[in-house]
Design a protein around this nucleic acid. Structure first.
Lengths: 217, 217
DNA sequence: TCCTTACAGTCAGGTTCTCGCCAGGTCCCT
DNA sequence: AGGGACCTGGCGAGAACCTGACTGTAAGGA
């Protein structure tokens, strides 16, 4: 998830489209106030902030975001290329700085570099099973269970809401491409495969709720 | 502790002096080989690498450092400001990129930004295979395996993140020039070549993750 | 100049594994 | 008892990947 705060509509939509093309989900805002509200809710992994916003200086926005506990890296975007402006950007807590006009490819690689450095999700479940996208596997302690892409998406959706029942059609929507023709039994089949893979770890992980869906733990 | 690898003596001493003025302890090297030796010993918190080194490309040096478990952020320094050069720097695992001539103040704030994000030092794995950028070879113990440039970049990118799956498109981006037309099979082909070269060392090194990419362990 | 060598990229054929589904069985609810 | 919902083992198609060989290109040497 990438937060974008840019007042110019044209550039905003260009960025949103480019981000989607890079497999990122953009969260866009046109003003600082809007960004504060949206980012507090959606919790982006990295943020692109324009410095010249109508209602505030982008650097002040950065400080405000940090004050509310949002610690994602910030890439500043601006038309001003003076050295003092750059320095001010970094001193306000920015992590990178790009002057307009810029190439989208450069935005891409710099974003990737920032994301590479952000630590993974904090270990909130000590010792418990964790779905690790970097390894495409479920990791429990020192053992790991390899998952195929479809299994990974399915289990990911299930684990996203522990202890709550996820409906069958919701699971299908999450694990298969939009509009895919998936027979009813296919979902059962995959749940079975995952269960079988997790069997040796004997965590009674996935329970069925008849007529509704499945539940993790 | 800041690692510096720059072949031009004048610039090297300017950087060293500037770093000391910023309360950083510089570890300087003039060649890639020297840097590998010095940084493995002194474990810098962040590194400044020139791209145009006499004995190797700075990006290959970055890959080699990462392959030996040195994970500190890298700031590339170079006279070349083309977009493709920048992108290649980031794809090789760089974290920031600055073109000469530059202001020392900008180096300062960018270094600070990188250090701000750096967690504590990671554990290293002594005795493992080491990439040698100067000779374009993989050295394990007393035997060494010669690699072609493309093989070197590919293996370097893989070894940079041990145990994690590196996606196919990421590998292509790291091993081939930006925008190169690479047939799907070409990557497979190169992985095979590397596997074959490493076979006599019998380290079951590269495993494939179907539908995702490859992984170094 | 011609030959040799090495690297890059591609091709075709074979192999392995994912995917989606089927057919039959089991369980649970009415 | 009956029927719907889910489980279970397995199977066929095709994608993904492996493998060995081949071609083009560029550099270096005789």
């Amino acid at each position: 998830m990438v937060g974008v705060c840019e007042d110019e509509p044209a550039l905003r939509s260009v960025l949103a489209r480019a981000l989607r093309a890079m497999d990122h989900e953009p969260v866009v805002a046109a003003t600082a106030a809007e960004a504060l509200r949206a980012f507090a809710k959606q919790r982006p992994d990295v943020m692109i902030l324009d410095i010249g916003l109508p209602d505030a200086d982008g650097r002040d926005l950065c400080l405000a975001l940090r004050a509310t506990g949002i610690d994602a890296p910030v890439l500043f975007l601006t038309a001003r290329d003076g050295l003092h402006d750059k320095i001010a950007g970094f001193e306000a807590g920015g992590d990178d700085y790009l002057t307009k006009p810029f190439e989208l490819d450069e935005v891409r690689v710099r974003l990737d570099a920032l994301l590479r450095r952000t630590p993974g999700p904090a270990a909130d479940t000590p010792g418990g099973p964790v779905l690790d996208p970097a390894r495409h596997a479920l990791v429990v302690g020192h053992t790991e269970v390899a998952l195929t892409p479809t299994e990974f998406r399915l289990l990911g959706r299930l684990m996203a809401e522990p202890a709550t029942v996820v409906r069958r059609h919701t699971l299908v929507a999450a694990a298969w491409p939009h509009g895919a023709m998936v027979s009813d039994n296919t979902l059962d089949s995959y749940v079975r495969r995952i269960r079988k893979k997790l069997e040796p770890l004997d965590l009674s992980a996935i329970s069925t709720v008849r007529g509704v869906g499945y539940r993790w733990r």
